[in-house]
Amino acid sequence: MISTPLADGVIDVHAHWLPTELFHLPPGAPYGPMRDHEGALHLGDIPLSIPTRAMSDIDAILTDMRATGVGVRVLSAPPFAFPVGGGDGVGGYVAAFNEALAAVVGDAGGRLVGLGMVSLDEPAVARAEMERLARTEGMAGIAIPPLLTGRSLDQGSLRSILADAEDLGLAVLVHPMQLPRPEWSEHYLANLIGNPVETATAVAALLLGGVKEQLPRLRICFVHGGGCAPALLGRWTHGWHSRADVRRHSTRPPDQVFGELFFDTVTHDPQLLRSLTAHASKDGVVCGSDYPFDMAQSDPVRFATEHGPAAEALTANARAFLGL
């Protein structure tokens, strides 16, 4: 619920924050815990190449916003804090994060907005958490992973969460988990290849699974420019027309539904952003930064406005995503 007027300027819908008291991460987290080492943030023994305070210090976030021309920043948890492991203690971690995030956005004078966390393994619990978020000032929705226990957005608890988000009017940001695979163990490929592939899988599941057709009011955004999805849209559409098994769960081809989704501008390539803008609707591209990670778009507003929609359109699109 956002009743307080937001600050002027471009809205960055994709940025991360986690308070230091939650660096231990939820039970069953595949990485971690997070820790500070001489001012630098580590995930277990893995250096994240960012200052610790960039993740946890609101003053550092606001300073970065001023330096990069961001008017409003939408904060969500870093993906390794998503409660994908389930089990005892998850509900307490989720509640602690949502309460802490609501407090910092509430004190930011309209410069920050929150996307909360939900328990992923128990739909009834997630529903109750989402109902609380829908009543909480400054919280516009939730952030979720694209995959969970081998399923994507068209099946299982993630599908249930999307239905509840539509019902409650909450925005949904889908962020990849950087899941490890043996063939991606070197060269940072779990991120460089894994993240865009995870996102493309989720977009395909949403389109070919008929989820957006069944949930027409769902406001859902895929980060990193939709990963591989824009480049694969023609292939998916050809498959939909050519094969009955591809189209059996949907009534419209993927290229007709793609324009009903939101995508951020974190593409790292002007030509890719122009291609995304051509494939998505004029209302579906929103500014993102991926702050504070090393793979962030370091000058997000300049990059987005030079190679994508104008600032006014980016802001209007983000307000629509957030339900304003």
Rank of each mutant, 00 (worst) to 15 (best):
Gly226Ile: 02
Gly226Tyr: 02
Gly226Leu: 09
Gly226Pro: 06
Gly227Lys: 01
Gly227Gln: 02
Gly227Asp: 03
Gly227Phe: 02
Gly227Leu: 02
Cys228Lys: 00
Cys228Ser: 08
Cys228Tyr: 10
Cys228Asn: 04
Ala229Val: 06
Ala229Asp: 06
Ala229Gln: 07
Ala229Phe: 04
Pro230Trp: 07
Ala231Pro: 01
Ala231Cys: 03
Ala231Lys: 00
Leu232Gln: 12
Leu232Phe: 07
Leu233Ile: 07
Leu233Arg: 02
Leu233Thr: 07
Gly234His: 08
Gly234Lys: 01
Arg235Val: 10
Arg235Trp: 05
Arg235Gly: 10
Arg235Thr: 10
Arg235Glu: 10
Arg235His: 10
Thr237Phe: 02
Thr237Glu: 07
Thr237Arg: 05
Thr237Tyr: 01
Thr237Gly: 06
Thr237Trp: 03
His238Thr: 10
Gly239Cys: 04
Gly239Gln: 05
Gly239Ala: 14
Gly239Arg: 07
Gly239Ser: 12
Trp240Pro: 09
Trp240Ala: 06
Trp240Asn: 06
His241Ile: 01
His241Glu: 12
His241Leu: 08
Ser242Thr: 00
Ser242Gln: 00
Ser242Ile: 00
Arg243Ile: 01
Arg243Phe: 11
Ala244Thr: 11
Asp245Met: 02
Val246Gly: 09
Val246Glu: 12
Arg247Pro: 03
Arg247Asn: 02
Arg248His: 14
Arg248Ile: 15
His249Thr: 08
His249Ala: 14
Ser250Met: 13
Thr251Arg: 12
Thr251Pro: 01
Thr251Lys: 11
Thr251Phe: 04
Thr251Ile: 03
Arg252Asp: 13
Arg252Met: 11
Arg252Gln: 13
Arg252Lys: 13
Pro253Phe: 10
Pro254Thr: 12
Pro254Glu: 12
Pro254Leu: 11
Pro254Ile: 08
Pro254Cys: 10
Pro254His: 09
Pro254Arg: 12
Asp255Val: 10
Asp255Pro: 09
Gln256Ala: 14
Gln256Leu: 13
Gln256His: 15
Gln256Glu: 15
Val257Cys: 08
Val257His: 04
Val257Pro: 02
Val257Thr: 14
Val257Asp: 15
Phe258Lys: 01
Phe258Pro: 03
Gly259Ile: 05
Gly259Glu: 10
Gly259Thr: 08
Gly259Phe: 06
Gly259Pro: 11
Glu260Arg: 12
Phe262Tyr: 15
Phe262Cys: 04
Phe263Gly: 07
Phe263Thr: 04
Phe263Met: 05
Phe263Gln: 05
Asp264Ile: 00
Asp264Gly: 08
Thr265Ser: 10
Val266Cys: 00
Thr267Cys: 12
His268Cys: 05
His268Tyr: 08
His268Leu: 05
His268Asp: 06
Asp269His: 09
Asp269Lys: 03
Asp269Gly: 06
Pro270Leu: 00
Pro270Phe: 00
Pro270Val: 00
Gln271His: 12
Gln271Asp: 14
Gln271Thr: 11
Leu272Gln: 10
Leu272Val: 07
Leu272Glu: 10
Leu273His: 07
Leu273Ile: 13
Leu273Gly: 11
Arg274Ile: 09
Arg274Pro: 08
Arg274Gln: 15
Arg274Lys: 14
Arg274Ala: 15
Ser275Ile: 04
Ser275Arg: 02
Leu276Gln: 02
Leu276Pro: 04
Leu276Trp: 01
Leu276Arg: 00
Leu276Tyr: 03
Leu276Ala: 06
